[in-house]
Design a protein around this nucleic acid. Sequence first.
DNA 1: GAAAAAAATTGAACGAATTCATTTTTTAAG
DNA 2: CTTAAAAAATGAATTCGTTCAATTTTTTTC
Lengths: 214, 214
Amino acid sequence: MTSLRARKKADKERRILEAATQLFREQGYDHARMEHIAELADVSVGTLYNYYENKGDILMATVNMEVTEVLDAGETIVADPPFDVEEAVHRLVDQYYDHSLYYLSKEMWRAAMAISIQQPDTPLSKAYTELDQRLSAQMVRLIETLQARRLVRPSVSARAVGEVLFNNLNMMFIEFVKDEPQPLAVLKARAAEQHGPIARLIALEKTAISTLAR
Amino acid sequence: MTSLRARKKADKERRILEAATQLFREQGYDHARMEHIAELADVSVGTLYNYYENKGDILMATVNMEVTEVLDAGETIVADPPFDVEEAVHRLVDQYYDHSLYYLSKEMWRAAMAISIQQPDTPLSKAYTELDQRLSAQMVRLIETLQARRLVRPSVSARAVGEVLFNNLNMMFIEFVKDEPQPLAVLKARAAEQHGPIARLIALEKTAISTLAR
DNA sequence: GAAAAAAATTGAACGAATTCATTTTTTAAG
DNA sequence: CTTAAAAAATGAATTCGTTCAATTTTTTTC
């Protein structure tokens, strides 16, 4: 049987995360006060620190849940991608992007990315970095799958191309969250402009080489 | 004639920047205390804030000087690149990387990148972002130059490929500074692994297509 | 079920960046 | 050269995240 202590603990951890996430969304990560989070979660400020290392850690817990969802959603596409390289890459990329602002604001993403860079050795930052690596691996697998289906030239290094594409979409996402007014549609359009030419470079089609389009 | 006031001001700004940079290098950005910087620069703490918006702003001033140097150094390579795509890309990338740790520690880079993401609208963060865009444009120009010399397929979009390569090297640099023990040589080797295949994809040579090597 | 041990909670105290009312210095006006 | 206005400098007060000694709650032991 789960002890009273264990139950209380799980309950409090959930309450803290919910309270914090609510405030982060409503007021932004920076404006949210630890005191206020504690109040909402019905614990003392000191208790917050028994559950999370610091304020950023609470944010990272939320962000990691979000990224995990994105990863799962991506799996569906990799399992059965469209029969066209450019189309397949766009589908995966757009799904990442569409998911990204569902739970988290740009300001929350900015804070999370800053934390993952500045404090890379905390457990939840490491978890975040690992999730990123799994997203990258997912893109690599997409290219591999397309290659197995003879849509991508066999001579291409799926690993290199997949990782480069991922790093590119990731960097573009950073620019996107830095630019508060930039709409999602603009991000997608810009990403498409860059991934399109790469996709056509690696595509294996009769028309591929003659239409290595600009 | 420059007024007494203007001279004093310029002198103080320089003193503050030097003091701060020294402490950031010696003790790390995080451990350096504003009080200590003020003391070294021979001004009061309050005065620091008449010259820079906040602690991060002082760091960004140093970092921007560094990036400006990298940009200038890169110009030399773009003006007269090696007659081989892969070689040319590696030269530029390696020069970026070699320069990066000359004045700034990994810890300083981490802080600077975190700041540029989290506070993207301060003047010096915007300047940093603009410098980054100019580095990206430099890579695009390298590809264009190679294309003009018939080393890169004319059908390739220099813009797309250049930007993708830059975003990739930038993202790899972020991973590098996050990973304190990773040596520069490993960063370069990993970057080469990814840029090599891309370079060979866009290279225009008799042997190009048959050696689209993995 | 009482006592001891372990775990969890608490909030006041601390540390460090930042702010701001006051004072000092420099420039401009007469 | 005085004096008023403007600019710059100052450091004490404020803010907010984080720490930690003391207290309370839960579990274990006998």
